Computed example of a mutant assay.
Amino acid sequence: MDIGIHPTVVVMGVSGSGKTTVGGILANQLGVPFADADDFHTPELKAKMAAGRPLTDSDRWPWLARLADWLRGEPEGAVLACSALRHSYRDVLRTASDKLCFLHLAGSAEVVTVRVGHRLNHYMPASLVDSQYATLEPLGPDEFGMAIDFTLPPEQIVEQFLKEVEPR
């Protein structure tokens, strides 16, 4: 795989899969800006999730549009940590760059539930993990990217991804 001279990567997966950690390391290695999609949620949506209510598609569309706008504003490349759970959500993000590549951090719900349960000061409760897995659509054959086991050390995930995609 080759993501070209302006790497734009979405590190995707369910909450607790390690998107922010891996995304920060990847952005640093690529020398591009990094953003966490959680920072683009409105206070109302964060409160909704904190109350244990999963987001609906109507909640997500404006958020995804803000994320695509941010990616468009980074023409030299960027890394975005974003759940991007459905193909249709990824379609919105793909409007931002024809070089968009996905790194899906994949693994078991049991591991994620433990991770999310140990988080401090985060609005996403462990009770919503099952709803994230119910929504998740793995990358399809028409989508540019790859899945890597999120239980690997973050540095190893980034190394494996970069070996596979070989950004120039």
Rank of each mutant, 00 (worst) to 15 (best):
V79Q: 10
D38K: 09
E166G: 06
I25S: 06
A50I: 01
V10S: 04
H104S: 07
E44F: 05
I5P: 14
L93H: 12
R66T: 03
Y133I: 01
H41G: 04
E164Y: 14
C82R: 13
H41K: 08
Y123W: 14
V111H: 14
P33Q: 09
F40N: 10
V114Q: 14
T8K: 10
L64E: 10
S131T: 09
D149W: 15
L71F: 03
E155G: 10
A109E: 15
G73I: 00
L67W: 06
W70C: 00
A78N: 02
K19V: 01
L128A: 07
R60E: 13
R119F: 15
D149Q: 07
D91F: 00
A106Q: 12
L80C: 09
D38S: 06
S17Q: 09
T21L: 08
P141F: 12
L120I: 02
V14N: 12
C101Q: 11
S58F: 04
L152V: 01
C82K: 11
Q156R: 12
E44C: 01
A81V: 02
V14I: 04
V79M: 05
D36K: 08
G24T: 06
F144R: 13
S88L: 05
S131C: 04
T21D: 08
T135S: 11
T21E: 12
P138H: 11
D69M: 05
L128W: 11
Q29K: 10
P138R: 02
L152Y: 15
P62R: 03
D2K: 04
P54N: 08
P62V: 04
L103T: 04
R72C: 10
N28T: 08
R53K: 11
F34D: 14
A126I: 01
I157N: 10
S83E: 13
V32I: 02
I25G: 06
R119L: 08
E110V: 01
T113A: 12
D2R: 04
F150M: 10
P125V: 00
T8E: 14
V11K: 12
W63N: 07
N121K: 09
A68D: 11
P43Q: 11
V14D: 13
D39A: 07
G107A: 04
L128H: 12
L162W: 15
P141Y: 09
L71V: 04
T8M: 09
I157Y: 15
V79C: 05
A147N: 05
A96C: 06
R66I: 00
E166H: 10
L67D: 08
